[in-house]
Write a protein that binds this DNA or RNA. Sequence first.
DNA 1: CACACGTGGTA
DNA 2: TTACCAAGTGT
Length: 293
Amino acid sequence: MPEESVAEAAIAWFDANARDLPWRHPDAGAWAILVSEVMLQQTPVVRVLPAYAAWLARWPTPAALAADEPGEAIRMWGRLGYPRRALRLHECATAIAQRHDGVVPDDLDLLLALPGVGTYTARAVAAFAYGQRQPVVDTNVRRFVARAVAGQADGGHTTRPADLVATAALLPDEPAVAARASAAFMELGAVVCVARSPRCTICPLVERCAWRAAGRPALDGPSRRPQTYAGTDRQVRGLLLAVLREAVEPVPRPRLDVVWPEPTQRDRALRGLIEDGLVDPLPGDLFTLPKGP
DNA sequence: CACACGTGGTA
DNA sequence: TTACCAAGTGT
């Protein structure tokens, strides 16, 4: 009898321990899964949960979102962070409505061509919504594979082709089983093989983990540079956009000026938001969330 | 490849 | 309190 594979062990653990998340329910279609994946880009599950439910209640289909204003998508995004994701998701819905008859495509290259859909999200939709055999590599999977298989600490970099290859090598042949394995790897990385204090004592793969066998070595090279926030343009953009999200009517400039005392940075942030399409300037020095083309 | 891009929770 | 971290993407 062959030794149980990494994927088999992960799936067995997943069968018994998976969190009950709405985008994993059988009734979650490709659109719901796509929405969840975009929301989960750099935002923790607990904060996505309520936003996900509200979003799909309002826009159950890509066509429904496409028919609404982009500014409404930005408003609904609330405080999930990186509001450009909301704008891209609106653009994405428009593209799906126009180019794909309102149906989220199942072809990887067509998915990759959608706004806001990159290496990770495209494969996540292909695997989780359409049951394809695709390596789905996010920060959790990267860390898990780097440790368990390569015996190394993950550098915190973004996913590279080599990461896809390494993960693909772990996937069973049967597409549906491979997709299940991808979900299991992700869950393992998210709740067991976590970044700071990995819970090796409850890990189903601890016996064969290369990282643990090597004495849990720390990161080799220089770690990811610290992400500062206080005093950055990002913070100022966030403050400006928060005002516009709450406002029903177009906002006069003085109401934006009060959020940040330094005019040079404040103006740069506002210009950046306009440049990015997150804010529309109106005649009379008024500003609003975008109404669309 | 490095950097910009929000927000909030935890150690 | 500072620092890290969270289902990344686009330039």
